[in-house]
């Protein structure tokens, strides 16, 4: 029941978010801010996670390569396909749900409990449109960039790990990366990414915007935002995979 009510309220919220900004100039400067705040500032954590996990994927694959029938380039191939299909779009999005989601929910929640949202409304500003739309657009624009960046670094991380441990040669690894490469997988991954970015920011804004009370409630809302947007990502992942890869 509560879930259905929340979904209804969330949908209503989106109809207020997706209206024409009053002044495009203000929207644009807010958008640039949010690109920085949501996008650029996530680059370091994405880089760190991707390099290390890419390295681990490559090493794990290499360590289970005892079967001599498997071609040597399997390591590269597995690293490439698991990175593109699942690790970068989904796992990195889940990590971003933690970082971006809590940030968005606590920022908007604080504005709510300190009456800054009331102050916007009283001026006649559509506060949802003013606050949330630039965040959503920034996420939709920048999440694909983050994910492509992650894919690149993950495969680079794999290569570095293999070089350090001397398990294979660069040529074999690169051969594997290019083997059975399916460009549609990139489309699939980026489609997922855009949806996940949208979900993270909109769900987290929802929890921040409708918070009541004080700073304790803002803290709870931001935890709730991370949990709910992670669940939303997992569900959407299942649905999108079904739709895009299996039909």
């Amino acid at each position: 029941m509560k879930l259905l009510q929340n979904i209804g309220k969330y949908t209503l919220m989106l109809t207020m978010v997706f209206t024409k900004p009053k002044k495009w100039k203000i929207f644009l400067s807010r958008l640039i801010n949010e690109l920085e705040n949501i996008g650029i500032s996530s680059l370091p954590i994405v880089a760190l996670m991707s390099t290390f996990i890419g390295g681990v994927i490559a090493l794990q694959t290499a360590s289970s390569m005892s079967n001599p029938l498997l071609p040597k380039y399997t390591v590269g191939y597995i690293t490439q396909s698991s990175t593109i299909l699942e690790f970068s779009p989904t796992i990195i999005s889940l990590i971003l749900a933690g970082k971006v989601g809590s940030n968005v929910a606590s920022e908007i929640g604080t504005m709510r409990v300190t009456e800054q949202i009331d102050a916007l409304e009283i001026m006649g500003v559509n506060s949802l449109n003013h606050l949330v739309l630039p965040k959503i657009i920034a996420a939709i624009l920048f999440f694909p960039v983050l994910i492509i960046f992650s894919m690149t670094l993950s495969m680079l991380g794999g290569w570095m790990a293999l070089m350090i441990t001397d398990l294979t040669t660069t040529e074999t690894y690169v051969l594997g990366l290019r083997a059975f490469f399916n460009p549609f997988h990139i489309t699939y991954a980026l489609t997922k990414t855009v949806v996940f970015g949208f979900l993270i920011v909109s769900v987290s804004s929802f929890y921040g915007y409708y918070v009541k009370g004080g700073s304790i409630n803002v803290g709870q809302a931001s935890t709730q935002a991370v949990v709910s947007s992670s669940v939303a990502i997992l569900v959407a992942n299942l649905i999108l995979t079904q739709l895009l890869l299996l039909s």
Binding site: T114, E115, Q116, D118, A119, E121, I122, M123, G124
Partner: peptide, 12 residues
């Protein structure tokens, strides 16, 4: 509302 100015209890 464009004709209204408001100072909030917490300033905001």
């Amino acid at each position: 509302r464009e004709e209204i100015g408001m100072l909030f209890q917490g300033v905001a």
